[in-house]
Design a binder for these strands. Sequence first.
DNA 1: CGTCAAGTTGAGTGGAATCAAAAGTAGTGG
DNA 2: CCACTACTTTTGATTCCACTCAACTTGACG
Lengths: 239, 239
Amino acid sequence: MMAHVATREQAHPVLQRLGALVPLDAEAHDALYGALSHSYRQRARSELVAEGAPITGPRLIVSGWAARVRLLADGRRQFLSFLLPGDLIGLCRQPEPLAVSTVLALTEVTLCPAPPPGASRQLDQVYALSQALDEGYLLEHIARLGRLNAYERIVSLLLELQERLSLSGIGSEDGFEMPLTQEILADALGLTPVHVNRTLQQARRAGDLDWRRGRVLLRDPAVLADAIGRSPMRVSAIG
Amino acid sequence: MMAHVATREQAHPVLQRLGALVPLDAEAHDALYGALSHSYRQRARSELVAEGAPITGPRLIVSGWAARVRLLADGRRQFLSFLLPGDLIGLCRQPEPLAVSTVLALTEVTLCPAPPPGASRQLDQVYALSQALDEGYLLEHIARLGRLNAYERIVSLLLELQERLSLSGIGSEDGFEMPLTQEILADALGLTPVHVNRTLQQARRAGDLDWRRGRVLLRDPAVLADAIGRSPMRVSAIG
DNA sequence: CGTCAAGTTGAGTGGAATCAAAAGTAGTGG
DNA sequence: CCACTACTTTTGATTCCACTCAACTTGACG
């Protein structure tokens, strides 16, 4: 169900991503296909997980974008991370886990229950790698908010998103689909929408990026990455 | 070795913290005592882990303070999290893991190898809880940097440190020892040392805190927590 | 064509940064 | 005991990056 149409004919983004983390054997493939057959949809803007609520089990994002978010009493909002196809949520091994953040669907999102840990050696490795990557990106986000200026923050986040999407085979030479509004970007980067808008225009004028109709193109990712001192995330010496 | 002198006669901070997460049976206790007997010291300012380097195995902080840090090419520095007695580092299950951040000793630090996962059911639960807490505090730090002002950031961080130290039985009615300089605080909170200094003075004048000779006293933690909308971290419905 | 969300633009302000220097503190060794 | 050094904290003057408030434009959609 919900076959995702990639730019070229290839595997489902979920299988693409997980298989890129660890080559999957038949057992792992079967477990994933079984899980995918239980996919279900969530409307855009719906709450997938509520902060403080019990976590029922691990889920896999099949398609669409979601985000972890923290809401302050006075209405301020901070996006903590973005969740893309192939990402896992609710992976934790403590008993009776509680969610530490709300998860919001930014677009319509298709989810499925993730195969439980322990079922497949390969999948367990996938989970471990995925979790390590998640942590790495959280750390990167902290450094972004703490020490980068508006221009650098935007470029840095876009580079991260492109890097993560490319793992799933989403996006190509002419950029990637990005369903985020400038307001969401602002709430992720600790800026105001107005300032995000102005900084984006500056980036466009500088020829660093092109962003129209929900499609982002970074002109020269390697140069941009170098300019802000960013390098691809690595969490294992293998791969 | 390195018996830590708490304000009142009680268990070692490490056992105090881990035992507070999950009640420990004899097996877990034995494993920990065995590990503690292999403690070793690291000088203040030394690098415990280098970003990008292979992780040799899990470690337990026996005493002293350390911090995860990211260094930018132009000299900017961002502290990602602080590591206190009883905290675990290098816990990850992917094969051939690489460190995603540098870890720096802020004071002299005593470390020991942590008992490997799988040896004790209780300890595995401790590890799971500890990891979940770590993630929660990272998320809190992101919200802090993204959406709180200087005053709120400082109060929020001090409340977190007090909360975490109290788990290990460190600190008391008259505050806690905090070996951080204002410069380190600035690099953790995305501020400049000068502005941290001015904001601290403001907090002192407001009667919110007292910080002299490395000892911090938060006058009314409950009121402060309420003012900035902070509540204690919970990652499991148990405990 | 009206409505609503998203994006854009302008004017003015403010919180935090920058630059520079003084004053306090602690450790070292003669 | 004091001079010497290095680090940390404090203060002052000034600047600037990003915020605020407000209005206008654009585009999607029924």
